[in-house]
Amino acid sequence: MKYGIVIFPGSNCDQDSFYGVSSVMGAEAEMIWHKDHHLGQYDCIILPGGFSYGDYLRAGSIARYSPIMQEVVAFANGGGLVLGICNGFQVLLEAKLLPGAMLQNKHVHFICKSVYIKTHHSNTPYTNALKEGDILEIPIAHMEGNYYCDNSTYQRLKDGGQILFSYCDAKGNSTDEANPNGSLRNIAGICNEKKNVLGLMPHPERALESMLGSEDGKRIFESIRSHC
């Protein structure tokens, strides 16, 4: 399988993602420049973490209008897999490929630490190697990860099985203490209705080798591989 990884000005997890999916997971991968107007043949596009356009105005708001994003939106609407990690999640929200918005973290701090997230559904391209209730230890690193949507959107996400991951403690309890950023209902990752677009605040590409503290991120990339 082949990944395409978009580089926006200010992306800083693009090389980590490239290394992770290619050297660790053994997939093919190519970098895609944000000014490109043409998208090659890929099985999955990754919008990586970072600070695209310096997070000016709102995180993801300017990257969303990068030329390549028109192609990414068309790819997603055609059923292609698009994984937005951290800043990539913010770009997906601004591009309206996913519902809701990101607010500043509740305590107005940049948070960089390892957290636990719980899996809610295993019937998606991103979670088929996981079981419902599986707990992953994966790092977060963000300033705006406080997911927000209105009540009717939340209900739609919940009923549609679109909330794939939520912050929890080591035992899987979704408590306020385990919620690092004030995110609505501890939401850490959501997908679209068709389940081909995933936005995830934690960084699975930083949790692929035990020497870095956790290999749990592999489960997400294994899911993508078995789907493709």
């Binding site: 105005l57 709102r58 300017i62 809701g100 918005a101 927000y148």
Partner: peptide, 8 residues
């Protein structure tokens, strides 16, 4: 379109 995000 861009200056504000009508959701929030």
């Amino acid at each position: 379109k861009i200056l504000s995000n009508p959701i929030i």
